[in-house]
Structure formats: C-alpha cells, structure tokens
Amino acid sequence: MKYSFVYLAGFFFCLLTACKKDRLQVYDDEASGNSIYFPLAESTNQLSYSFGYDKSAVTQTTLRVVIRAIGAPKDFDRPYKLVIADSSTMKKEVDYKILNTETSIRKGKVADTILIQLNRTPVLKTAPVFLYLQLQPNEHFENNMLTRTVITAGTVTEYHFNRLQISSDDIAGPPPFWMEKSPYYSWTFNYLGTFSSLKFQLLINRFNLKVEEVVSPNWFTTGGNYYRLSGWGFGMQAWLNRMEAENNTVYEADGVTKMKMGAGVQ
C-alpha cells in the first residue's frame, strides 16, 4: 500500500483580520469556543490524488488528513462530528474507506488524523470523483472559526476552515518536459514520441522510475537527466518491436493505434 502524507504543522497564534474571529488564540478557550478545523485549509480547501502516475500494481493509497482543535487540551477524549456531504461522488467502501474506528481528539491532545483509503477503480480513468468533508459542531466543539477571505490582485478567495474537498482520478498528464509548450519538447518528442498515459505508465514500469522525481519541474535539467530519454526511447522501441514480432502488438488505449516511440529511435 502506498501512503501519501498530508500534514500542515503549526498552531494558529492569530488569524488574519479577514477571518470571522480576530486573533483567536490556540489555548484561549473562551475566545475560540473550542473550534475545530482542517489545518490544510490555511492554504487550500482541495486535496487531489491521481493514480495516473502510479505503477499498475498500485491499487490503493492512504491519505492522512489532520484535524485540529483550537483551545487547551482536555483530560478526556473529545469525539468530533465529521460529515460526508450527500453531493460526494465517491462511493463508500468502493472508491474510499475511512480507516479510523472512531473520530476523536484524544485526552491531552489538540489534533487527530483521519486515514482515508482511496481505491483505484475503473471509473477513475474517465473522470475524477469527489469526497466532500465537513466538520460540524457538537457538544465538544463549536464552529466559531469558519472562513478566511484573501484578496490577491483583485481576486477574492474564501477558504472554509471546516470544509475539505478530496478528489481522485487515474488520469495522468505529461510531465513538464513532455508538454508541448515546454522548451524541451522537441528533444523529448524525438526520443519518446507523442505522450500518452499508457506509454508513460509502461515507461514507469519497465525502467522502475521514481514518479515523484520524474514529474518534478527541474528533473529534466538536473544531473544530465535529459540524456536518459534516448535510452528510454531505444529500450522501449526495442521491446515494442519484440512484442510485435511475437504477435503481441502493444496498442494505445484506443486499441487501434500501434504504440511507437519517437522518430529518433526508429
């Protein structure tokens, strides 16, 4: 199983003046009302995961989503109310599973971590699915801390501290150096040819590539990595030729177009 860690450390010592409450102190119970929130929402209300870059053997991943309370820790467990919105398109026990047996801020703690297992289902190859989480008040926690408004270059963005959107798909776009607008595209195209998710997946599997490195913005120009493309191109084309000679021709996802690498390796 593959794990993706989503954690944003650090307490709130104060909130921006655009928040619903000003200067809510982490351990100020009276001011904060023991509010509960997603720390990730300090920067975004969206969390996305794509299986498109994973090897074909990967069938699931687990996201770790932190939930934090404002206020002093207590000497007893405090269950919180986590709600899955009806508008979610992920299906429980099919597309996702919450692994926690209970949702609670433990005694002496001010945070908890939700483990959400995402499954690699066939539908993800055609469109993303969504899971909408919301923290609601209960006898232990309030929702005094709801939103923060940020204005950037005249654009107003509102972040909801008690909401989080999680999306999942199995659609991989090209890494930066394989994008047509990239200054390195002509070099890449010469060896690897036209990008397709299936071709990239085969490259990952055959050459045991570390996807998180290959898709990083500076990979192409780091340590002479661009020279590796010729080896990938020649190696893949030799394998494709062998498969065709054995009457096991490899086709693109449409089942009609024969897969081939760039002109420089033909």
Rank of each mutant, 00 (worst) to 15 (best):
S43C: 10
S43R: 15
S43D: 14
S43M: 13
T44M: 03
T44L: 02
N45C: 07
Q46F: 05
Q46L: 02
S48H: 05
S48A: 10
S48K: 07
Y49F: 15
Y49I: 06
Y49M: 05
S50D: 10
S50Y: 02
S50G: 08
F51E: 10
F51L: 07
G52M: 11
G52E: 11
D54Y: 06
K55S: 12
A57M: 11
A57P: 01
A57Q: 13
A57E: 15
A57I: 15
V58M: 01
V58R: 01
V58C: 03
T59N: 13
T59F: 03
T59E: 14
T59I: 08
T59H: 09
T59D: 14
Q60I: 01
Q60C: 07
Q60E: 15
Q60N: 14
T61W: 01
T61P: 07
T61V: 15
T62H: 07
T62L: 08
L63V: 05
L63F: 05
R64P: 10
R64W: 01
R64V: 06
V65Y: 00
V65E: 02
V66S: 10
V66D: 12
I67H: 01
I67N: 00
R68F: 03
R68W: 04
R68V: 08
R68Y: 03
R68K: 14
A69L: 04
A69P: 01
I70G: 00
I70P: 00
I70T: 00
G71N: 08
G71L: 08
G71E: 09
A72M: 07
A72G: 03
P73E: 05
P73F: 05
P73L: 04
K74A: 15
F76I: 06
D77L: 09
D77A: 14
D77F: 02
D77R: 08
R78P: 00
R78H: 00
R78I: 00
R78N: 00
P79Q: 07
P79H: 03
P79I: 06
Y80I: 00
Y80C: 01
K81F: 04
K81P: 02
K81V: 01
L82W: 13
L82A: 13
L82S: 11
V83K: 04
V83A: 04
V83D: 09
V83P: 09
V83Y: 02
V83Q: 07
I84W: 02
I84D: 06
I84Y: 04
I84H: 03
A85Y: 04
A85T: 07
A85F: 03
D86K: 14
S87D: 13
S88L: 07
T89S: 15
T89N: 09
T89K: 08
M90E: 13
K91C: 04
K91T: 10
